[in-house]
Amino acid sequence: MVKEPIEIRKEIFNLLSQIPDPEIPVLNIVEMGIVRDAYIVNGKLKVNITPTYSGCPAMKPIEDDIVKLLEESGYQASEVNLVYYPPWTTDWLTHEAKHKLEEYGIAPPQNTDESHDLNYQFTGILCPFCNSADTRLTSVFGSTSCKSLHYCNACQQPFEHFKCS
């Protein structure tokens, strides 16, 4: 019996949700919104993924992980395509994903003005440890493209924030 495209898509998405994001392993690549589509053309499985940040060095390992997992799962001739449109946004992170980030100690994206407003000031980012809004920005650029560095004045912990983008 031939599977419906929607079933195939669901099956592949389920399968690929085993792959952790190489830089933020608490999230998988489906929750991150990186996997956009999966379909079969002429018996060949195609998976579309979208880059997060333009220069994100995790994209290549992610592609390799997908090909490897699909091969192990019996999809011999799969193809991974990089698609640019629509561009990736943190709006695609699920509520569950944001909650996981917080549990992991990274403040999730909070204010969408951050990605649009040129005068945005990064005040009041909630501390993932004590939930205080009494925090300050240390640097807009952090250990990975997607994070900024902050300091909590209340519990005196430095912390990272997943930038809204």
Binding site: P51, S54, Y84, Y85, P87, V140
Partner: peptide, 15 residues
């Protein structure tokens, strides 16, 4: 492709 690359890059450039 042009729209997608630009949409992504625009957010980066604002930072």
């Amino acid at each position: 492709n042009v729209a997608g690359i630009s949409g992504r890059a625009l957010k980066e450039i604002k930072y």
